[in-house]
């Protein structure tokens, strides 16, 4: 091989690489545009004048920017109340889910007791069924215990629905914490409760944080149960309130977008910031069960 053919081969490879990169960049750009398409309209509609989708200019931000929808949301609707209700439900669900699942997972991981196998098996099978298959029954049960149209009723439903999957998730994690650590604590005379709260819980922090966040974000946009359980105006949530803007009867698309944007932004910031952690927790949580 002469020198010139080597350089030729090199330059060939380089042009090939450049073409390759250009094609890939173009493809990625097209996909990115498709991904961003509805989101750009979400942002532009939130600040666009007019009410319905038909009055929305097809070129985003062409008709100027206005804050009238936000003024409308905060002055003329119960947006703050919906926000407060949703926040309380989400917080309640998150705290109770973490407590219930973490303790149950610890007990499943570290203790031997009768019916343990059948209980774990039932949890595993139950996690596959969506809880609203039994929604009529849940309605009647809440009616029986006075939980209809209350926020704690919603927390109970979400909490119960969270238990089967998340108990398994946390249990798998606690299984991977060496038993010698809590056995050492037991030998030093710590009670079960103390061992759990002071040794195991701090070590399980990553999965606890993951659980706290996922169970906090879950209720924000849940629709089916809120619609069925929360009837009075004082108990509406964000999903219900926002959905009411785009029903068949009225189309206030721009107001819907304005309200939805406030929710979407923290979600997006959170996901973009934590994408690295998300990648690892998704793959380790789901794959190596």
């Amino acid at each position: 091989m002469t020198n010139s053919t080597i350089t030729k081969k090199h330059s060939n490879e380089r042009t090939f690489q450049i073409i390759n990169k250009t094609i890939i960049t173009i493809v990625l750009t097209i996909v990115a545009m498709a991904v961003l398409y509805p989101l750009i309209y979400l942002v532009s509609a939130a600040f666009a004048p007019g009410n319905s989708i038909s009055s929305l200019n097809i070129i985003p931000f062409k008709d100027g920017v206005t804050l009238e929808h936000y003024r409308f949301l905060f002055n003329n609707t119960n947006y703050m109340l919906w926000f407060k209700n949703t926040f309380l439900i989400a917080l309640g669900t998150s705290v109770t889910t973490v407590l219930t699942c973490a303790i149950a997972a610890y007990v499943f991981s570290r203790f031997r007791f009768p019916f343990k196998k059948s209980m774990m098996l039932s949890l595993l099978i139950l996690q596959i069924f969506p809880s609203f298959v039994g929604m009529v029954a849940i309605y009647v049960i809440l009616l029986r215990i006075g939980g209809l149209d209350t926020l704690w009723g919603m927390v109970l439903i979400y909490l119960a629905g969270n238990i089967p999957y998340n108990t398994w998730l946390v249990k798998s994690y606690i299984d991977s914490i060496p038993r010698s650590l809590d056995e050492a604590a037991r030998i030093d005379g710590a009670s079960n409760a103390r061992t759990f709260f002071q040794i195991v819980l701090p070590l399980a922090k990553p999965i606890i944080i993951f659980l706290a966040i996922t169970s906090f974000t879950g209720p924000w946009m849940e629709f089916v149960f809120s619609k069925m359980i929360l009837r009075s105006n004082a108990k509406q949530t964000l999903a219900l309130g926002l959905f009411s803007f785009v029903t068949d009867k009225k189309n206030e698309f721009t107001t819907f977008c304005a309200g939805a944007l406030i929710i979407a932004i923290p979600f997006v910031i959170f996901f973009v910031l934590t994408q690295r952690i998300l990648v690892t927790s998704l793959s380790s949580g789901a794959l190596k069960e």
Binding site: V31, V35, L39, A260, F271, V272
Partner: peptide
Amino acid sequence: IFILPYAVPTVV
């Protein structure tokens, strides 16, 4: 950009 659809709630 690509993870945005995952981040935005489905309802929205």
